[in-house]
Design a protein around this nucleic acid. Structure first.
Lengths: 126, 126
DNA sequence: ATTATAGTTCAACAGCTATTGAATTATATT
DNA sequence: AATATAATTCAATAGCTGTTGAACTATAAT
């Protein structure tokens, strides 16, 4: 069953989530985490980012629910980030539906010279 | 064949394209165009946006290659926008790969108490 | 106890961009 | 020729946010 339309609220909601991942550094962080690089210091090192900036971006990813945080049981100073598979999967499916070319409808003629509105208007006498 | 990694350049490129669609008004415009509402005036009317703002956002969508523009053959003052199916499909597949949970790797231990670096360091005498 | 380390929070700033209103272009109508 | 219409371009503004450096918190090591 293919979803054919999105409500305005759903579109706005999707845009919000897209804004979270539409930032190059954040998307790079996600890619690294997906690859298995999940401790804060390695993320900062491999991307050349200051630790506070890492915190900032990971916080946004975390608020969006895309990643989860775990503290090391031996030494709780260390934190490890991991992707939230469920949220990722939901996002994947939503995007899959939104950008499905099957959804595309032909132009609805309601404007321009061919529109009936135009013709009707012309029939109204002045 | 599932793509397992993205290069930094690919990630940055993807982020740029995501930025284009991560704007609520633009995503709403895309949704409307997909539904078949494709003339400028209708788009503005159904979304409550001024014509110049419509132009602005559609210009960005057009620069990104997501939509194409056609002028009315009878009255070239009217323009109609349509989605670029090829670009949409490419984007859909890229996102499908990026957010595929199958890509996710377990944590690579290179930091923290369990890391070998740590242990090796401890073996070095002072 | 003191120092070191990992990470977060805070404050300030700069750059970008969505929005608005006015001016402009180009085509069609009268 | 003059006016109207559809759309774009331009200039100015305001709000948001990524970035930076400093201060702070919490835990571990000495």
């Amino acid at each position: 069953m293919i979803k054919t339309t999105f409500t305005n609220e759903q579109v706005v909601e999707l845009a919000k989530l897209l804004k979270v991942i539409a930032e190059p550094k954040r998307l790079l962080l996600l890619e690294e985490i997906i690859r298995g690089v999940q401790c804060n210091c390695d993320l900062g090192e491999s991307l050349g980012m200051a630790p506070n900036l890492i915190s900032h971006h990971l916080g946004i990813l975390r608020t969006a629910g895309l990643v989860t945080i775990t503290r090391d049981p031996e030494d709780s100073r260390w934190v490890y980030y991991a992707i939230n598979a469920q949220v990722m999967e939901d996002l994947r499916r939503t995007l899959d539906q939104f950008f499905s070319t099957q959804r595309a409808q032909p132009r609805r003629i309601s404007c321009g010279p061919q529109s009936e509105d135009k013709v009707d208007k012309d029939l109204i006498p002045k």
